[in-house]
Amino acid sequence: MERLKVTLEDEYSAVEASIHVGRYALALPFAAGRRVLDIACGEGYGSWLMAQAGAASVRGIDVADDAVARARATFSDPRISFDTGQGETLAETFPEASFDLVVSIETIEHVQDPVRFLEAIRRVAAPDAIIILTCPNDHWYYPPHESNPYHLRKFTLPEFQALTRGVLGDAVQWMIGSAALGFAAVPLAADPDGPADGLPRIVHVETMEASLRVPSSAVAPAPETCSYFVGVWNAPGRVAGAGAVHALSMDAYAAMMAAYPQGAAAAPAPSADASPKERVLGAALQRENEIMAARIREYADQEAELRDRIRECAEQEADLRARLDALTHERDALTHERDDLLPAALRWRGMVERVRRLSPTTAKLAAGWLRRRGPDQGH
């Protein structure tokens, strides 16, 4: 979407809101107390957000009269003013060193003379002003011989870097912008049914207490596969990044995650005349296929190992059963032997008791006779 409409009558899209507000999120921490210039302000939502972040003043300019009119009608605030103007003629509109923060969200691809545009930014910016420029990665969105009909040129990251550094200098931090996926905790009533203050939902934003960026997986964005490029000049410290997110139900998340591997598995190889976007998507899907194939091989190896262990356990069980059978047979044999010997032993004990009751002389003779006979010959 080239220009986002943000009136109360227009349908709200959380995806489009995060795309557009995410660009401005990078500027909000620097807005407090500064004089801000918002170049190509569109319908004014970014200017409003920077004013709410504490800007001393915000001047929004745009080439479209209708966008400026809607910005004035929707975002009326004594700190904000909106005017129609060209980026290349900023120096004719504002005095030198008028701004402490200059924000240009994807404007450079529209202007007739990018160098003149950047020189105008340099003149209206204070010597230590923070300058934030973004540029779309149209090489991802369009095939080599096609382009956005609203853009006058397509930039690669090296081209964007060389052009802007040549005018604005080397005190810059480079970033890339892209889609993000993750999880966040949001208040239970984070999304009311509708705005109560008469403002479009796109500016109903909340600063999250903490957001952490974890390392990306095999499909992490790169300059060739990102959505846009960012340069931040004269920032007082390291810029860690910023963005805008919208909460998603787990039902929708599960459906999205379930559909993606199916698309990756079924995706055909890109043809030779495929666009860079198609080739990048094909490469990303191929990487996902490789990851899934590696996992399948890993699971197959684990299954084979488990089957081997099951066979070993079965063999050990058979050996233990054989040993148990042998011990049982030995126990039964000993039991039979005991049962055979028990009557003779009882008879022997009885004879011994009777001998004890005889006179000593007779007992001595009987004992000798019993010793000679043994227990098995007694009656």
Results as ranks from 00 to 15, higher is better:
residue 1 M to D: 15
residue 3 R to H: 14
residue 3 R to D: 11
residue 4 L to W: 14
residue 7 T to D: 11
residue 10 D to N: 14
residue 19 I to R: 13
residue 21 V to P: 00
residue 21 V to S: 04
residue 26 L to F: 11
residue 28 L to M: 12
residue 28 L to I: 08
residue 30 F to W: 11
residue 31 A to D: 00
residue 35 R to M: 07
residue 36 V to G: 08
residue 37 L to E: 04
residue 38 D to C: 14
residue 39 I to R: 10
residue 40 A to T: 08
residue 41 C to I: 14
residue 42 G to V: 12
residue 44 G to E: 13
residue 48 W to T: 08
residue 49 L to E: 05
residue 51 A to E: 10
residue 57 S to W: 15
residue 58 V to W: 02
residue 60 G to Y: 09
residue 62 D to A: 09
residue 63 V to M: 10
residue 69 A to I: 13
residue 70 R to N: 09
residue 73 A to W: 08
residue 73 A to I: 07
residue 74 T to F: 08
residue 77 D to C: 08
residue 86 Q to I: 11
residue 87 G to T: 01
residue 91 A to Y: 05
residue 93 T to M: 15
residue 94 F to G: 03
residue 99 F to Y: 04
residue 102 V to Y: 02
residue 103 V to M: 05
residue 104 S to W: 13
residue 105 I to S: 13
residue 108 I to H: 00
residue 110 H to L: 10
residue 128 D to H: 14
residue 130 I to R: 07
residue 132 I to R: 05
residue 133 L to A: 05
residue 135 C to D: 00
residue 139 H to S: 11
residue 141 Y to Q: 15
residue 155 F to K: 08
residue 155 F to L: 06
residue 155 F to A: 07
residue 166 G to D: 03
residue 167 V to W: 01
residue 168 L to D: 01
residue 170 D to E: 06
residue 171 A to K: 09
residue 173 Q to W: 02
residue 173 Q to V: 02
residue 174 W to A: 00
residue 175 M to Q: 15
residue 176 I to H: 05
residue 176 I to K: 07
residue 179 A to S: 14
residue 179 A to C: 11
residue 181 L to Q: 12
residue 181 L to D: 09
residue 182 G to C: 03
residue 182 G to E: 00
residue 184 A to L: 11
residue 184 A to M: 08
residue 185 A to L: 14
residue 186 V to I: 05
residue 186 V to M: 06
residue 187 P to R: 06
residue 190 A to Q: 13
residue 190 A to C: 14
residue 193 D to R: 12
residue 196 A to S: 12
residue 199 L to T: 01
residue 200 P to I: 03
residue 201 R to V: 10
residue 203 V to C: 05
residue 206 E to A: 15
residue 211 S to P: 06
residue 213 R to E: 03
residue 216 S to G: 15
residue 217 S to H: 13
residue 224 E to A: 12
residue 226 C to E: 03
residue 234 N to W: 03
residue 235 A to S: 03
residue 236 P to Q: 02
residue 244 A to C: 15
residue 251 D to N: 11
residue 253 Y to R: 12
residue 254 A to G: 07
residue 261 P to Y: 01
residue 263 G to H: 12
residue 265 A to T: 04
residue 266 A to H: 10
residue 275 S to V: 04
residue 277 K to E: 07
residue 278 E to H: 00
residue 286 Q to H: 14
residue 286 Q to D: 09
residue 290 E to G: 07
residue 295 R to P: 00
residue 298 E to V: 02
residue 303 E to N: 12
residue 311 R to C: 06
residue 317 E to K: 14
residue 319 D to G: 06
residue 320 L to E: 01
residue 322 A to P: 00
residue 323 R to S: 04
residue 327 L to R: 10
residue 330 E to P: 04
residue 331 R to T: 14
residue 333 A to I: 12
residue 339 D to V: 09
residue 339 D to A: 15
residue 341 L to F: 07
residue 342 L to C: 06
residue 344 A to L: 13
residue 347 R to V: 13
residue 350 G to N: 10
residue 352 V to T: 10
residue 353 E to W: 06
residue 356 R to Q: 05
residue 356 R to T: 01
residue 357 R to F: 08
residue 358 L to Q: 02
residue 359 S to H: 04
residue 359 S to G: 02
residue 364 K to V: 02
residue 365 L to C: 04
residue 366 A to K: 00
residue 373 R to G: 01
residue 374 G to A: 00
residue 376 D to T: 10
residue 377 Q to T: 07
